[in-house]
Design a protein around this nucleic acid. Sequence first.
DNA 1: CTTTTCTTTTGATCCAGATCAAGGCCTGGA
DNA 2: TCCAGGCCTTGATCTGGATCAAAAGAAAAG
Lengths: 258, 258
Amino acid sequence: MSKQRVVNLSEVRTQCQKCSLYQLCMPMGLAEGDLNKLDKIIKRRRPVEKGEFLFRLGEDFISLYAIRSGSLKTYTSQSDGQEQVIGMHLPGELIGLDAIGDSRHGCSAVALETTSVCEIPFEHLEALSREIPGLQHHLFRLMSAEIQHDQCHMTVLARMPVENRLASFLLSLSDRYKLRGYSASEFNLSMSRSDIANMLGMAMETISRLLTGFQEQGLIQVERKHIRILDAAGLRAIAGQCGELPDSPVDNSSSHSA
Amino acid sequence: MSKQRVVNLSEVRTQCQKCSLYQLCMPMGLAEGDLNKLDKIIKRRRPVEKGEFLFRLGEDFISLYAIRSGSLKTYTSQSDGQEQVIGMHLPGELIGLDAIGDSRHGCSAVALETTSVCEIPFEHLEALSREIPGLQHHLFRLMSAEIQHDQCHMTVLARMPVENRLASFLLSLSDRYKLRGYSASEFNLSMSRSDIANMLGMAMETISRLLTGFQEQGLIQVERKHIRILDAAGLRAIAGQCGELPDSPVDNSSSHSA
DNA sequence: CTTTTCTTTTGATCCAGATCAAGGCCTGGA
DNA sequence: TCCAGGCCTTGATCTGGATCAAAAGAAAAG
């Protein structure tokens, strides 16, 4: 381990710690050389301004994007021109994973505020993950986590009344901010009420009423886009959880009808 | 290419063609040696009878399962004991991808009929996909496709009225059966009405009424679990599509509010 | 600073689809 | 063969949230 290498490492760390790659690299303890390799394939690009597209539905898929700062929403368009918001994406998250399958973006990504991203050409990443087993494993885990997350969201949309949906959403934001080192109890919504409503499958008016209601119940404090969570346990009680284990596991025989 | 190798290859093909691996291996043109390696890590196991679990929510994740014949449903359980059906899985599909992330199954899988599967220990598969680039790529594509599919389902659940949901579901089944070489216009529902309703986020009674309605409109013919699609175009008109491209792409500047 | 425009709130009404209720129909077991 | 317990269908009612409407704040533009 030469002195120069150590310098390189710390330099890379500085670049990656704040950016997406902190999430992408660190958890699996890449060797310093590997970190450098990874850093080399990443393209920095000018920040995406609020309202600009990072990519659009139908475009060729070239790169994944890791969010370094700011936030984006992704959405699809229906045949009738209606938009469906798929998700809101925070720093440290990787977007574009849904496009690998058919080499074409299945949704559009718009910046909700000035946002900087690292562009990761997927072919390079794929090649690199053949060399670096830890990277391959990490990518599998990331994609799996996304599937899990989407399934959770499906459950929320299919079953839950509106209170639960919004409570889940707020808690999920809180958790994600916390994971990134921000406050878990206080944050700004970067999406508009109507985007939130759209994503949660309800009307904007309902969001507005619910936020007021939660505030009156002392669960949160709302001021415009700023949210302060006062009673996380209370919210959690409203939200319910997806994928929770039932109390007493039953035996492995046919207790289930088909 | 020795004669013996050729024999091995055809033998493997026979095993894999009907089973999940047909989907998993063939599209990427694995070399014969690679096919053999893949075949070696796969465990055959006795069929899962109707109502039996293949795995359960909360269990340790060891293997992916490729469905060789039959079908399964996956579902999660809410804290209140309610079930949410996540998906229905046909031959050629791989299940368990959502469990890689936290090494624990996030849903339960129950056979809807006698079902045979190949068990693929994930650690082995991961190791093998380091050796075989095509395999790695294929796995990324599979997981990506699952993400895409789930996002489509989220859109359906969030926005669409019940007619659209059911029409989408029937068309998706039709497509999937077709892809597997079965009839696109005639198939059996292996899930009960109430499971379908649950999965589509509606009441069983509504499914029943809609099926009757579709039949009266001459779109389908229903007899118990047997469905015959008479007017796929008509169904498609009702369903709408997710991820469709809007008519005229606009320029890349800020046409979008945040 | 004023005007325009967009976003959010709040109130009133309405309806798609859930829920409740009651029969009819398969299916599997004895 | 008959019976029992699920499924499925059909009808009647009810309600959670959507939609419609309008005004009050912010923010952006002039």
